[in-house]
Nucleic acid binder design. Structure first.
Length: 759
DNA sequence: GTACGTTCATTTTTT
DNA sequence: ATGAACGTAC
């Protein structure tokens, strides 16, 4: 049993107040680094340990799966594994999927529904456009889908949307919306947004079901409350409306998901919905140095929107000035980052795992990755081209999904002719047309064709397959072969474990051979190894009951996008988007691409609110740093293969110059100053053509040796030392120094800031 | 029906 | 720069 003093250990008065607040509505407004995750975790422990709440009655919602895992880990340490396991912790989406799996029968839906990811959703959308005879060129599937998604986040259904459609575009969306839902329904599939919408609908239409959940989850907690959209807000309200035991934590200044329907006003609504709510402010920052906080605040204070004023403060001291560094282009920017990382690590004060590189768009990660590889620095890229987005993985998953839910038209048409089995475009279209006409899933139509073929075969007198229309027998046989495959896998699913099912399926399909045929032996094997990696993941589900192995696996694959981080990469530099970085912290942070068009992003430039969101994004990124923050931008940047002159971000101008240290231009940036920008423009490829590797990129030309053995030197961190030796390495001076009591270190003179001492 | 070469658009950000 | 979608040749 955990007692109160353990739970409250090390908390400041405000945090303590939040943790110990009487059960009831509590709104915690917490700045970055104020220990909100800590407060949330302790609150759970407090409810259990002091109020005697059964952990089964606690539901904690986080924003990412990563945050969920972290919270569970922390609670395990605080409470012990048994009680921690009894809690329900997860994202809105995973929790809703869970509810629906259990109760969607009330909505007249089968429980083994498929969950469509972004790619699947787009495929459905294209199908919709074809069905409605709309031109893809004229009506961007993405734009229409985005509008539908936005509507769903606002809990607007196709009917309501249609009633309020005023423009031509909205009319089109309204029609697409209705058809889109029909197709999903027919495929027994839900998209991400539906998970929320359907759960809200379930609770709305079946009060008895809602009541059951209200009783089950008498205590609710939600992290990152500022990022909830309307659907999520309503869901929390439904669940909390009985007992009012809801504890939410948020920060207006860190709201960065408006594009997905997040509405900061939900914070205001909280106080309106629960007038008895306690509101607690957490303002002390435990994470960053004052230097870092000042920079972050300088940018956020220029917001157009009025904000509830928070005064962030810290006892961590001034710290090192925030550095601004300009690279010549994105490659040099990345090299400067990688070089600085190498120096920080060589200095001995930091490890790769202490360092993060953050960027606005995933596309920026490529240059970064190359530079890190060149430096041989260990790194992980969070997100990016995800494992589950690879074609071979999606194909493998499509087969598995069909084994669970054969009505899943998107998966079916995905692998209908992969590997090639004689079902061409024509046959596929024919099948789709027939299914469409009969308003049945493709799988059902396949069965119809099979039945008709059999009937025709029985009538020995008339060999002409009249009932099956004009379909040539070759095509029909190919289709029936595929049908047999699907039916066999439906069958095997009943008896085989997930792993065994995969082995059987991939063998039966000829997966490996197909990959080698298509991509050649080498790449084919690479891709096959990816599939085998998927096979390995399946082992984690071996302990579940046979009946739920496949469904649980597929659900987590769809919802746990950051499964890559499951492989808890040990001690590597983290490359991550600003959005994903929320909630994390690192001793050293590099923010790259601080340029107009990138941060703030061009898509947000003309909208005040969007611009504010970009500002908050900067704020989030900057406040991830504990000790050192670097802000980088490039003089020119390539986008879509075209390179353009880049303007430094306006956010840099919002920071008072005395808060920043501008690194002298080095490397290509310096060369470009010498040779003139015009010359640099005339020869944009000079960077690649230059005979120097990133290793040998001379920072500022050959540097003279300035340290000699026996000299006394002083270093900011290591103190007094004596030079052992010094030599030129890659154009920089590498000094080996024996420090008093700290041992022998090798340092780069250009960065270590070694001072000569005395004579 | 398939395989290959050309064109074209593509990039916010996430579950 | 890269990959998907389309057209043409086999």
């Amino acid at each position: 049993m955990t007692d109160a003093s353990t739970i409250l250990d090390g908390l400041n008065p405000a945090q303590r107040q939040a943790v110990t607040a009487a059960p009831g509505p509590v709104l915690v407004l917490a700045g970055p680094g104020s220990g909100k995750t800590r407060v949330l975790t302790r609150r759970v422990a407090y409810l259990i340990g002091v109020h005697g709440v059964d952990p089964h009655h606690i539901l904690a919602v986080t924003f990412t799966n990563k945050a969920a895992r972290e919270m569970r880990d922390r609670l395990e340490k605080l409470l012990g594994p048994g009680e921690a396991a009894a809690l329900t912790v997860g994202t809105f989406h995973s929790i809703c999927a869970r509810f629906l799996r259990r109760d969607s029968i009330h909505l007249g839906r089968e429980r083994d529904f498929a969950i469509y990811d972004t790619d699947d959703q787009l495929r459905v959308m294209k199908r919709v456009l074809r069905d409605l005879n709309l031109d893809e060129k004229k009506h961007a599937p993405r734009a229409i889908h985005a509008a539908i998604s936005r509507a769903k986040n606002e809990l607007i259904d196709p009917d309501a949307y249609s009633r309020h459609a005023h423009s031509y575009f909205e009319e089109v969306v309204a029609r697409c919306f209705a058809r889109y839902q029909e197709l999903l329904r027919g495929a027994n599939a839900l998209d991400f947004d539906d998970l929320l919408v359907e759960t809200v609908r379930l609770f709305e239409e079946h009060p008895a079901v809602l009541e059951r959940y209200q009783e089950r989850y008498g205590f609710l907690l939600a992290d990152e409350y500022q990022d909830t959209n309307r659907a999520q807000y309503v869901l929390l309200k439904q669940l909390a409306s009985r007992h009012h035991n809801i504890f939410v934590v948020g920060d207006e200044d860190q709201s960065v998901y408006a594009f997905r329907g997040a509405d900061i006003r939900n914070i205001l609504s909280f106080e309106r919905d629960y007038p008895e709510a306690q509101v607690i402010l957490l303002e002390q920052n435990y994470r960053s140095t004052q230097a870092i906080l000042d920079v972050a605040q300088a940018v956020i204070n220029r917001s157009a929107q009025r904000r509830r004023d928070k005064r962030l403060w810290t006892r961590n001291g001034e710290g090192v000035l925030v550095q601004v560094i300009e690279g010549y282009d994105q490659d040099e920017e990345a090299q400067l980052v990688a070089g600085e990382i190498a120096r920080l690590i060589a200095g001995g004060a930091y490890q790769p795992g202490d360092i993060a590189i953050m960027y606005r768009t995933n596309a920026q990660s490529r240059a970064i990755e190359e530079a890190l590889i060149a430096r041989q620095a260990p790194y992980i890229i969070v997100g990016g081209t995800r494992f589950y987005e690879r074609k071979e993985i999606k194909d493998a998953l499509a087969y598995l999904r069909l084994a669970l839910n054969p009505f899943d038209d998107i998966s079916l048409s995905r692998v209908l002719n992969w590997p090639a089995r004689g079902i061409g475009q024509r046959t596929q279209e024919d099948l789709e047309r027939r299914a469409g006409a009969a308003a049945v899933p493709l799988y059902v139509m396949l069965h119809t064709l099979a039945a008709n073929a059999e009937a025709a075969a029985d009538q020995t007198t008339s060999p002409a397959p009249a009932r099956t229309g004009e379909m040539p027998s070759r095509a029909r046989n190919a289709l029936l072969g595929f049908l047999t495959l699907i039916d066999e896998s439906l069958d095997r699913r009943q008896t085989l474990s997930l792993g065994a099912l995969m082995d059987w399926l991939f063998e039966r399909v000829g997966f490996r051979e197909a990959l080698r045929r298509e991509y050649g032996d080498e790449e084919g094997d690479d891709r096959w190894n990816n599939v085998m990696e998927l096979r390995n993941v399946a082992e984690q589900y071996a302990d579940l009951p046979l009946a739920s192995q496949l469904s649980t696996f597929l659900e987590e694959v769809a919802l746990v996008s950051d499964i890559d981080t499951l492989q808890e990469e040990r001690n590597a530099v983290t490359c991550i988007t600003l959005h994903q970085a929320k909630g994390l912290e690192f001793p050293v942070v590099f923010l790259v691409g601080l340029e107009e068009g990138l941060l703030p992003h061009a898509r947000s430039a003309d909208d005040r609110d969007a611009l504010d969101e970009e500002r908050r994004l900067f704020y989030v990124g900057a406040t991830r740093a504990k000790e050192r923050l670097y802000l980088l931008h490039a003089f020119r940047r390539a986008t879509y293969g075209r390179t353009e002159i880049a303007t430094p971000s306006r956010f840099l101008h919002d920071i008072p110059p005395d808060l920043l240290q501008r690194a002298p231009k080095r490397g290509y940036a310096a060369a470009q100053m010498v040779t003139g920008r015009a010359a640099a423009l005339r020869n944009p490829r000079r960077n690649q053509a230059a005979p120097v590797s990133p290793h040998s990129a001379a920072p500022d030309g050959p540097r003279a040796i300035s340290f000699f053995a026996g000299q006394k030197v002083h270093h900011a961190q290591f103190g007094e030392g004596i030079v052992v030796s010094s030599k030129l390495v890659e154009g920089d001076e590498e000094v080996t120094v024996a420090f008093v009591g700290k041992g022998v270190k090798r340092l780069l003179a250009s960065f270590a800031n070694l001072q000569h001492v005395g004579e």
